[in-house]
Write a protein that binds this DNA or RNA. Structure first.
Ligand SMILES: [Mn+2]
Ligand SMILES: [Mn+2]
Ligand SMILES: [Mn+2]
Ligand SMILES: [Mn+2]
Lengths: 136, 136
DNA sequence: GATGATCTATAGCCTATGCTATATTTAAAT
DNA sequence: ATTTAAATATAGCATAGGCTATAGATCATC
């Protein structure tokens, strides 16, 4: 492996990481809307395990990036792009957990590890996981 | 899943992430020392794909955390703790790649994805991967 | 409709992680 | 030994993502 290839690999991991938080927020806002009919800042903060101003700031980035909208003192909503991302992220999360369980990871551990792993699973790997799970 | 459990899960993923860069630097410095006999800042920066001052700053954190030492205008060295971490990280990296390949991910893709995934694989999952790879 | 509780926004702070520009030191070449 | 080149350190800046404290808005209750 050349230096450049290695550098690209690390750059890719860094990029995936920068998207990870966005993905988790978007997925979770989708969950809240599905469960409660709305996503309030306080609920988002509680589920993410962060302070409320931290959630507010993250939501501002989601809005800036076109994944969400919100009005002051009202809830947070997903844009079409945000809703699509949430759906992809949710499906990938399920697949990753299923793959981990399929190779012998206990359910509980699989859920824990998947929360981080999912953001680094490429489309190609995801496809391989699905094929493996279907016994192909 | 309760709100607290979910929050803990996210907190765990955040923690894993904060360790990820440290792990990659330490592993890579170990590689350089093994290959070239020394790890120079310029080489570290090139392999990580970052500017030289970025590498210098990361090395300062490694030193602060007890994983490395260095003298001005000289190379970087791993402490005993750093060398042990490097070895663990290297072994885990190999196992993750092997697991991905075993479930059908192409070698190249496996290497790419593993660079990010590895940092979120718990001891328990790692053990499960090893057992799976041994056909148990 | 006032009032107290709750929710949200804002200000201000911190660390990590990136960058460019430039000073300083070491190494190489003449 | 100079001079030049290369490596390293340092200064200064930016953004992301944490936090606490507090101001401001909304909601519920009487
Ligand atoms: Mn996640
Ligand atoms: Mn998830
Ligand atoms: Mn890595
Ligand atoms: Mn690695």
């Amino acid at each position: 492996m050349t230096e450049v290839e290695q550098a690209d690999r690390f750059a890719r991991a860094r990029e995936a990481q920068s998207v990870a938080l966005i993905e988790d927020y978007v997925e979770m806002i989708g969950d809240l809307i599905a469960e409660l009919g709305e996503a309030r800042v306080a609920d988002i903060a509680e589920r993410m395990g962060v302070a409320q101003p931290t959630a507010t700031k993250a939501i501002a980035r989601l809005k800036r990036d076109g994944f969400a909208t919100s009005r002051p003192y009202r809830g947070v909503f997903l844009t079409e792009e945000g809703a699509e991302l949430a759906e992809r992220v949710r499906a990938r999360h399920r697949t990753v957990v299923a793959l981990l369980v399929a190779v012998g990871v206990p359910e509980e551990i699989a859920e824990l590890d998947a929360e981080g792993i999912e953001h680094h699973v490429s489309e190609q790997s995801l496809k391989a996981f699905e094929d493996f799970l279907q016994g192909k």
